[in-house]
Design a protein around this nucleic acid. Structure first.
Lengths: 129, 129
DNA sequence: CAGTATCCCATCTGATACTG
DNA sequence: CAGTATCAGATGGGATACTG
């Protein structure tokens, strides 16, 4: 990511960078119930590739949101669990999920309307008097 | 893509797709105070290119989160404002920003610790120069 | 089981030039 | 002012074969 300009005063960018990915939130939600293993995550998040799962796991661990615990057994067992900080984040995220649930239909409808307006002619936006 | 996930009553993917971008949230927050013009957004969000601003603006408008109002004056004037639905989203987002403010230091510290443990920050999501 | 390594395409992003 | 057009590079993401 381009760190060229000041992040110093903008906590917003900080959140964004952490939550931006397509998978980060999913992983956090999946791990919120308790320690979860690699394969369980892979199965739960359905659609994520092994590569992306690993990458995101590492990033979240690096940011102090996940704790990776390795059990030196054969076969190996690794568990990921949220840190307290991440649990807090998860609580906030729940609000986001709630919002999505409430407005999903409205969004779908808005999209359809927009697409039809664009396809049917010009002038998508509102024109002020 | 992850249609299976969506079918499983998972609004998560819906949120993600809407919030995933690097800029969407920034735009929503910037527009939350009231109607805002294109150039103001460009200046406020610092770092966004004209192209990305336009693209994100269109997407948010399409999803029914932004209303685009064109004033047929010379020179042209266009204002973007949040819909009620987006204002709700903004309220939720505030929680996210609050979380970031509270834990920013901890995250930075965690990263530093992780990078040192790994040995210089090579090999993870690190932006290696 | 829990990853790595590798190939490859899709999308994102930035810089710049141009227009109504 | 508020975009659109175009190009080129960076990054994200999927598939899969391979390893400790």
């Amino acid at each position: 990511m381009s760190d060229r300009f000041a992040h110093e005063a903008c906590p917003l960018t900080e959140v964004l960078d952490r939550v931006a990915g397509k998978w980060s939130i999913g992983i956090i939600v999946a791990a919120a119930q308790g320690p979860i293993r690699f394969t369980e995550l892979e199965r739960t998040i359905a659609g994520i590739s092994r590569r992306m799962l690993t990458l995101n796991l590492r990033r979240l661990e690096r940011d102090g949101l996940l704790v990776r615990t390795v059990y030196p057994t054969v076969p190996p067992k690794v568990e990921y669990s949220l840190t307290p900080m991440a649990h807090e984040l998860h609580a906030t995220l729940s609000g986001l999920v709630g919002w999505a649930e409430r407005h999903r239909a409205a969004i779908t409808e808005a999209r359809a309307r927009y697409d039809e307006a664009v396809g049917g002619g010009v002038g998508v936006g509102t024109t002020a008097p």
